[in-house]
Amino acid sequence: MALPVCKEAPKCLMENNDGDLKVNPKAPQILTSIIKPIVVVVFAGQHSIGKSYLMDWLAGSNSVEEIKREAAEKDKLLKQQQVEKQQKIEAQQRSLEEKMNQLKWKMMENRYKRLEKNNMMLKSKLKEQEKLRKEDFQKEVAKMKKKIKGLEAENKDIKNKNSSWWGKLLGIAEFAVKFMFSGAGKFAEK
């Protein structure tokens, strides 16, 4: 059932001037001049929920074609925004994956550098130990053995990738990033 279209523009009896709600000074004159039955319509609600659109539709100021055109434009804009958001999410995901790969390489490089440095120190300490052993300094030999065992243990930890807390942390971060973006992609598809 189609609503009848108003012949005249709607009359506002209340005005909103800079946040102050006031009665239109011409309201009594408008009301006394009406002889036919009237309908009073009040719209209230949050910003951008369609109050003006509904009022225009009731007043008959928009044709059906214009309403369809506006709806199609809004739909097109929403789809475009959705595509842009999806592209932004994908770009962020690629950027994070690239940074994670860079971090992995940097950590691996640092690990090898530490290993190389420790091997050099180990060789030096072994030479020093041999020298002290020849000079029969038993006390110094015991200290040196302790340092050597510590370096050997550290080398073992460096070689053992699973015991590295950096490796575990990186694995957790990589899982979290993949989980976040796999969920964000599904959300954007809806």
Rank of each mutant, 00 (worst) to 15 (best):
A2H: 11
A2F: 04
P4E: 07
C6W: 09
E8Q: 03
E8A: 10
A9P: 12
C12G: 14
L13P: 01
L13I: 12
L13Y: 00
N16V: 06
N16C: 12
N17T: 15
G19F: 01
K22L: 13
K26C: 11
A27P: 00
P28K: 05
T32G: 09
T32L: 02
S33Q: 06
I34L: 06
I34D: 05
K36V: 05
K36Q: 04
P37G: 12
I38D: 06
V39R: 11
V39C: 11
G45Q: 00
G45T: 01
S48H: 04
S48I: 04
G50S: 03
K51N: 05
L54Q: 03
D56K: 13
W57E: 07
W57A: 06
L58M: 05
L58T: 06
A59K: 04
S61V: 15
S61M: 15
N62G: 10
N62K: 13
V64C: 14
V64F: 11
I67S: 10
E70I: 04
A72G: 12
L78Y: 01
L78G: 08
L78W: 03
K79H: 13
Q81S: 08
Q82D: 10
E84L: 09
K85N: 13
K85G: 11
K85I: 08
Q86N: 13
Q86C: 05
Q87H: 06
E90L: 08
E90D: 14
A91Q: 13
Q93E: 12
R94W: 02
R94K: 11
S95R: 09
L96H: 07
E98D: 14
M100K: 08
N101A: 11
L103W: 02
L103S: 11
K106F: 07
M107S: 10
M108V: 07
E109L: 04
N110E: 06
R114C: 13
R114G: 09
L115W: 00
E116D: 12
N119I: 06
M120H: 11
S124K: 02
E128Y: 04
E128A: 09
Q129C: 09
Q129W: 00
E130C: 13
L132C: 05
L132M: 11
R133A: 02
R133N: 10
K134D: 04
K134C: 05
D136Q: 07
F137H: 15
K139G: 07
K139I: 08
K139M: 07
K139T: 02
V141E: 02
K143L: 06
K146S: 03
I148H: 00
K149R: 11
G150V: 12
N155Q: 11
D157N: 10
D157M: 08
D157L: 13
D157G: 12
I158G: 01
K159G: 06
K159N: 13
N160K: 14
S164F: 00
S164H: 08
W165C: 11
W165N: 12
W166Q: 15
L169I: 15
L170N: 12
G171A: 09
I172A: 15
A173F: 10
V177H: 00
F181S: 01
F181I: 02
S182W: 00
G183R: 07
A184E: 01
G185H: 03
G185Y: 02
F187D: 09
F187T: 13
F187N: 14
F187V: 13
A188F: 00
K190G: 04
